[in-house]
Simulated assay, not measured.
Amino acid sequence: MNIFLMILQLIIGIMLVAVVLMQPGKTNGLSGFISGGVAESFYSRNKSRTSEAMLSRLTVFLAIVFAVICIIQNLMK
Rank of each mutant, 00 (worst) to 15 (best):
L75I: 15
L30P: 02
T27G: 09
G36M: 04
L62G: 01
I71M: 08
N28A: 14
I71Y: 07
K26M: 12
S31P: 04
A18Y: 06
K47D: 09
L75D: 12
L62V: 07
V17P: 00
F4H: 08
A53D: 06
S44P: 03
I11L: 06
F33L: 15
P24E: 04
M1G: 14
Y43N: 09
G25D: 11
Y43F: 06
V60L: 07
L30V: 13
V65D: 00
G37Y: 02
G32A: 05
S31Y: 10
I69F: 04
K47V: 10
G29E: 03
L5W: 04
F61C: 08
L8D: 00
L8F: 00
I69S: 02
A18E: 06
M54W: 14
F42S: 15
L16E: 10
T50Y: 01
R57S: 11
T59I: 06
C70W: 12
L5D: 09
M6P: 01
L16N: 13
M54S: 11
K47F: 10
T27C: 04
V68G: 08
I64Q: 06
N46W: 01
I7N: 06
R57A: 13
G37C: 02
I14E: 04
M6V: 11
L58P: 06
S31K: 15
I72H: 02
L30T: 12
G13E: 05
S41D: 11
L30G: 07
I34Y: 09
G37L: 03
F33Y: 12
S44I: 07
E52F: 08
K26N: 13
S51M: 15
I14M: 05
G32M: 03
V60Y: 03
A53R: 06
I71P: 03
V68S: 09
A39W: 00
F33Q: 14
A63E: 04
Q9A: 11
S41N: 11
A18L: 15
G13L: 04
K47L: 09
F42E: 11
L58A: 15
I11A: 09
M1Y: 08
G37D: 03
I3F: 04
I3D: 07
F61S: 10
N74Q: 10
M15I: 05
M76H: 09
F4C: 08
F42L: 12
V60F: 07
V19G: 00
K77V: 14
M6Q: 15
I12K: 00
I12G: 02
P24N: 05
E52C: 12
V68F: 05
G36N: 04
